[in-house]
């Protein structure tokens, strides 16, 4: 998929209403850019070219939210084409569980043969997204305390 999603310009793209004139003018320019043969080449870098594209901070790959570690880029490449990285990072499974999920995606969701990357991906997932014991009911956590008005 196109991966050039996290630039500053991109993030501020749709923020704030600047008036209908801007929108209309923008629309016309957009049409012009679409119609202009090769026009995009003049204004666009290729995906992944800008600095910081695959930046990792505090152990997190900023662009996707994946944990940094061996196999990260194989996971990014193979696991975010169809769905968001969030579908992976919010789940916890054993290596066998992740393998079953891959088989299910291959059998029903058009996931391709991962070849030599499969073991790399499974090792990564089993290391970073393994189940934690939760018991039958957990403590309430992340409570933001506030004064209740009578």
């Amino acid at each position: 998929m196109g991966n050039r999603t996290k630039s500053r310009a991109g993030q501020s793209l749709f923020r704030g209403w600047q008036g209908i004139v801007v929108v209309l003018l923008g629309g016309l320019l957009l049409v012009w850019l679409y119609l202009l043969p090769g026009g995009e080449a003049a204004v666009a870098e290729a995906p992944g070219d800008e600095p910081g594209f695959d930046q990792v901070e505090n152990g997190i790959h900023l662009r996707t939210g994946f944990a940094d570690g061996e196999g990260l880029m194989a996971v990014v490449t193979n696991c975010t084409a169809c769905h968001s990285a969030k579908l992976v990072t919010q789940n916890r499974m054993t290596r066998e569980g992740w393998e079953q999920t891959i088989r299910w995606m291959q059998q029903t969701q058009n996931l391709w043969d991962l070849g030599a990357n499969e073991a790399i991906i499974l090792d990564y997932l089993a290391a970073h997204y393994a189940p934690e014991k939760k018991g039958r009911r957990q403590n309430l956590t992340d409570i933001e305390w506030y004064e209740l008005q009578p």
Partner: peptide, 11 residues
């Protein structure tokens, strides 16, 4: 990709 780049450039 181009559509995003186009919008960014417009901004």
């Amino acid at each position: 990709f181009v559509s995003r780049a186009g919008l960014a450039s417009l901004g």
